[in-house]
């Protein structure tokens, strides 16, 4: 599995969909939005814009890392026949799944860290060390469900449509989850839907920690349930997707 992960890591580093959308885009958006909204909070009792947007865009970047290493890539490999060739080698499908998942989440970490670093360097964001540590770790874990979700997309989309579908879903759940527009500004009707989404809950972990609060159990349960649902869907669609005709 280690060698399979090495192979996937090499591909991810060379994948422009990773380097541009997961690494460069969140930093660019952070500079843009934090520059626009500045340090003032959007509503009373909320975080400063610098910090709130930092959390949102770290999640935004981390999620894309998870999705791009799974969805479009698996769809392409199913179509190209690489997955079939992989079945001719002594490596188990489970090892492939786990290896792929680990690479997706490992590469999410630098994407998220770079947003924090940009916030610190450019906007002088500062938090106590224990809050940084908790945020970096827990928000990272918070985006993991998307690596599982990406596998589903890889199994149910075609090579041609996969990128568009993955990117579209990514944008919609990010917007609804308050990663584009601060939740305080979102209408309640949308926010109520957004709060059900793992995008919002992953970011909410960070917003709580940055406020000096403990993350809520709602976030933990929400992300865990989504992960379980995703895993069950994979168990259903995987046999059909990997079968050859």
């Amino acid at each position: 599995m280690k060698e399979y992960m090495r192979l996937e890591a090499l591909r991810t580093i060379r994948d422009p969909l990773y380097t541009t959308i997961a690494i460069a885009a969140p930093i660019g958006f952070y500079l843009l939005f934090a520059g626009l909204f500045g340090a003032s909070p959007h509503a009373s009792g909320t975080l400063s814009g610098n910090v709130e947007i930092m959390v949102a865009l770290a999640v935004f970047g981390g999620i894309w890392s998870c999705l791009v290493a799974t969805g479009p890539r698996i769809a392409f490999e199913r179509n190209s026949g690489w997955l079939k060739n992989l079945q001719l080698l002594p490596i188990s499908p489970l090892a492939i799944f786990i290896g792929r998942f680990l690479i997706a989440v490992i590469f999410a970490l630098p994407a998220m860290l770079l947003v924090y670093i940009t916030a610190v360097v450019v906007h002088g964001v500062s938090l106590p060390a224990n809050q940084w540590a908790a945020m970096i770790l827990l928000m990272w874990i918070g985006v993991w469900p998307f690596a599982i979700f990406g596998v589903i997309l890889g199994y149910i989309t075609s090579a041609e449509s996969s990128f568009g579908i993955t990117f579209g879903i990514y944008q919609v759940v990010s917007a609804l989850g308050g990663l584009w527009v601060p939740p305080a500004i979102l209408p309640n009707s949308i926010l109520n839907i957004g709060k059900l989404l793992p995008t919002y809950q992953a970011a909410d972990i960070g917003w709580h920690i940055a406020n000096g609060l403990y993350p809520t159990w709602v976030s933990g349960v929400n992300l865990l349930l989504w992960s379980l649902v995703f895993l069950i869907i994979i168990a259903i669609v995987a046999p059909r997707a990997t079968k050859i005709r």
């Binding site: 280690k2 994948d15 026949g81 060739n85």
Partner: peptide, 22 residues
């Protein structure tokens, strides 16, 4: 097998290392 492109994004040398390691 007849079907199937190989994995994109890696070199022949890296690919051979991977297959041998299995």
């Amino acid at each position: 097998i007849q079907e199937g492109k190989m994995i994109p994004g890696v070199t022949i040398s890296e690919f051979i290392d991977f297959v041998r390691s299995l």
